[in-house]
Amino acid sequence: MPLDYRRFNGPEDSVSYKRYTNKYYKGYDELYKELVDDKGRRKDGRALDEARSMCMFFARTDLISQAKGSAYIELKKTKVVCSVFDPREIPHQNEFSQLGQLYCEVKFAPFSCAQQRRPHVDAEDKSLSVALRQALEPTVCRHLFPNYQVDVFVYILEHDGACLAAAINAAGLALANASVPMYDIITSSSVAIIGKKVFVDPTEAEEHLAMMSPETEGTNHGIITMSMLSELKQVSDFVQIGSMDIECVTEAMDILEKECENIVPNIQKVLVHNVVQSFNQRKQLEAEAKEREIALNVKMEEWKKLLNAG
């Protein structure tokens, strides 16, 4: 991968100072014990099956004025910004395409993770972009803008697990905010599986451990992210990494389906708030316009009188 030489990239072989702290050398079992306390609570006080969508969720739209639509989603420490731009003609394409296209790009901020991220696009960014596109394509009415593409840019400011799910949620909200025609609200959720424990909406530490291979053979581990169109009951994307048996997968699917439905009201609330706000805004604008017109009319009358008198 070519480096951007206009930036200061740091020495090639530098390592994070955290490698030399005690925490780094903790074994698998030790890390595993840390995740859940005796009462079955996770580090941030949640139960195993409790997502952050309930009380640690924040979403808003219209924060980027240059973009047609934008959204910001916060799941405690996972923070994602998404912006959607006007449709434009697909660049470098000779053939006419019947369906409009979505161009998705996911990027991590250099300071978003524990380890420093290089500013150039790496493999993880690319695979997240592909997954995001896969998730969004079935939701958008692409036949309405043939030969055009809509750009969706996601920037991950802070990564504390479930970043793909957060990116998909934010992108869905931003698309709706940009008034791109869609079939349904898209929501997404993820679980991390370690042995028999299922962590809904995992944090970075939980994800990290789920991706590590346990020492005993045959234990289930891995991460599943699923995105759904809840009203239509359609799964638009399903990504699983790790190693688990079929029962585990189907079980996790049921949990994820429920979780995706739980997020819908959150998104709806923001959208309704948007509509109300824009209504009020329009009303205010109309009232102002009327006021101006009355004032103008009064002025006109005055001038007419002056002219007639002169």
Binding site: L99, Q134, P138, E217, K233, F238, Q240, I241, M244, E257
Partner: peptide
Amino acid sequence: QCTESKCTTIGMNGPGSVVSKTLKDAI
């Protein structure tokens, strides 16, 4: 041990979507 088959990755490809029941059967 390890005679049991396990899923290591699942992914979807293409512009469509599926119902979750179909997904389970397909897996």
